[in-house]
Amino acid sequence: MKAPLMMVAVQIALAGANVLSKLAASDGMNLMLAVAYSLTIATGVMGPIAFFLERKKKPKITWTVLVQAFFCGLFGASMFQNLYLASLSLTSATYVSAMANLVPAVTFVLAISFGLEKARLRTVAGKAKAAGTLMGIGGAMLLTFYKGVEVNLWSTHVNLLHHAAATQQRPEGSSNRLLGSLLAVASCFCCALWFIVQAKMSEGFPYHYTSTMLMCFMGSIQAVAYALCRERDWSQWKLGWNIGLLTVLYSGIVASGLCNVLVAWCVRMRGPVFVSVFNPLMLVTVALAGSFLLDEKLHLGSILGSGLIVLGLYGVLWGQRKEMEGVVDQSMLPSSSRSGESLPGDSDSERMNRH
């Protein structure tokens, strides 16, 4: 159960980064610069950790590893985060969060296409995984698009965004919404491709701290270069003792650093589809955090959607456990019995019965 607990922790940590990003944006910070800063900080933090924890293993960094790290940094860090934030600025946080729940379905299709997963829809485990994935996506969509009646479970009367409520505006034009939708879909494909490339990288380079450091290093170069091309006002690059500094530190150390290590480990142990299925959990966590910290009200749709997400996760985890049990059972059988060959000492009747 280590992998599920790790992925739950990852989604809670990412939800915290989501809330901090909202606060930083309301404070006037350019989130494109936040991406560049957070990836740079993540590189500086993960470098010493990778050196001290994996120096005795002497990981050999080949050109193949560097190319894979480049694409991990591109799809999983710089491009994904910038596309997500660009779509967020053109539409709304609710809409982009809903689109992000396409990641499990896209990852499942890509994993089957690249041969990393098998559908096995004729087996009970395969049906459970497919149904659980669809149920999780459906629950996330229900949580996002259906409100229903307001449910007053608690009231903290805390709203950290109250100072930005009067000034925060979002463009609502149809052209902006169409472009934002395309950017959101592109961010989903980037995230799914990252899981696929990470799975390939973990097979030949199972050093998660070093691979995360390389990914953040490549992503930081890409993000800084992109930010320099888009933002020439150096006053915008200055960080003060405010929510912006806290956001980049938390995002760099926790979200881009430690969380990526856990994701890399879980991808290697359980596969890319398993990791992507936990994405909708962040919606549940953000909904709860919004209720506690941003004075957002819970609705019936949030509760029903959360229940579907939990049921969907249980279905996928149950299916994966059944598949793993089947693999273990097959591996415990003698190779001759699996291939239909006779065993030493078998009688003629026993050979005939086995065939």
Results as ranks from 00 to 15, higher is better:
L281T: 12
V328A: 13
G252N: 00
G240D: 09
V254T: 04
L333C: 13
S342F: 06
S335N: 09
C229H: 05
L228Y: 00
V328G: 00
A227P: 10
G340K: 01
R270G: 02
F278G: 02
D233R: 05
T285K: 01
R230Y: 05
V263P: 03
L298D: 01
L281W: 00
S306N: 07
L281V: 14
F278L: 07
V254Y: 08
V284R: 07
G326A: 12
Y250H: 05
L333N: 07
H299R: 06
I309Q: 07
N242C: 05
R232P: 15
L300D: 00
W265V: 14
L300I: 08
P272E: 05
N279M: 07
R268Q: 13
K238F: 12
E323G: 14
L288C: 15
T285M: 12
I253A: 14
L294D: 03
P280V: 07
G257A: 09
G312S: 04
L300F: 01
L311T: 04
S337V: 14
A225C: 13
E341S: 11
F278E: 07
M324R: 08
S235T: 14
G301Y: 10
F292C: 09
G290D: 10
S235F: 11
L298A: 01
W234G: 04
L311D: 00
A264G: 13
L294Y: 13
S235A: 14
S235D: 14
L300R: 03
T247Q: 03
L262C: 15
F278Y: 14
P280D: 06
W265G: 01
A264S: 15
P272W: 14
V273A: 11
C259P: 06
L298H: 02
P334N: 07
N260Y: 15
E323S: 15
A287I: 12
Y314R: 11
L333Y: 09
I253F: 15
A255S: 14
S235I: 08
W237R: 05
L246F: 10
R321D: 08
A264P: 02
G305W: 01
R321V: 10
G305D: 04
D295I: 09
V328E: 11
V267I: 12
L304A: 12
V224A: 05
F274E: 04
V277M: 13
G244A: 03
V277L: 14
M269P: 01
V277R: 02
N279W: 00
E231Y: 06
F292S: 03
V254I: 15
A289C: 08
T285H: 05
C229T: 03
I253Y: 11
T247G: 00
W234M: 12
S337E: 13
I309M: 06
G326R: 03
L308C: 15
A225Q: 05
G315W: 10
R321E: 08
M282C: 10
I253N: 04
L262W: 08
G252R: 01
E325Y: 06
S306T: 15
L245H: 01
M282F: 06
E296P: 10
L228S: 04
L294T: 02
